[in-house]
Amino acid sequence: MGQGFAEAPLALFTTLAPMGACAFIALLIAQMKGAFAEGGSTRINRAVWLPLVVVLVGFCGAASHTLTPAHGIYAFTGLGRSPLTNEIAVGGLFVVVALVFCVLSARGKMGDGARRGWLVALSVLAVAFSAFCGLAYMVETIPSWDTPFTVVQMLGYGLLGGSALGLLTLEVAHTPSLEGLARPLGVVAAIGFVLALVGFGGQIGLCQTISNVWGTAASLVPAIWGLFAVLAVCAVAGVVFGAMALKRGNVALAVVACVVVAVGVFFARIGFYGLQMSIAL
């Protein structure tokens, strides 16, 4: 798997954080479908912590990747210049907004309009954050990463994972009439599914043609298509388990859906980091 496993903390971060963030899109859909109407609202108001916690676990992974997190405060000085800072900044912004939302939500003091407003903002931020998770790797001197596929796959992972996690959140909250969500949630998941596979597959394809003095980028991870297969199988399984969970209102199935998607994305991320190849040395 090349050098990819050395970057496991980062893989964890880019798997969990966009997944958690994009789960709020599912909440937005639920809100729009009226799932937050009285009755279900107390549980759901608490359940919104779940995706945020997933995001935070992801951030912990990111922090554990750095050797001297104590200097992390300086990470904001690269704003606008460093794509990594931009990513952290958008992620940070998301976390702050989400935190406020969750606190307000838990106090049960949010009106429908306000909630919708917050969720729209969070959804937009979630998509932006996923995109920035990709943009962070579009470095001119790393041609194997410097492709739109890098962003596309991150969006895909966010949307796909987010749908699963969003579903789980709603299930945990015993949200009634989930069937109504099936269609819109299915569309989001489908978009995520396509972007994920097109993004990662496209990048792998490109990496066959990119080479430096050490060889082609694809050859850095001999098992790269195998990792793609893992992603594809997990994504399909995720969608199937998700659909079943939705249909039966079964929390356990929703958990399985989340886990398989996360596992698939995680392996794809390991492959992604393994593909890192400099333009020269």
């Binding site: 200097h71 300086y74 990470a75 000085t77 690269g78 210049r81 460093s82 794509p83 990594l84 800072t85 952290i88 470095v139």
Partner: peptide, 8 residues
């Protein structure tokens, strides 16, 4: 320097 998040 371009990519360095901290300016280190």
């Amino acid at each position: 320097t371009k990519v360095c998040p901290t300016g280190a």
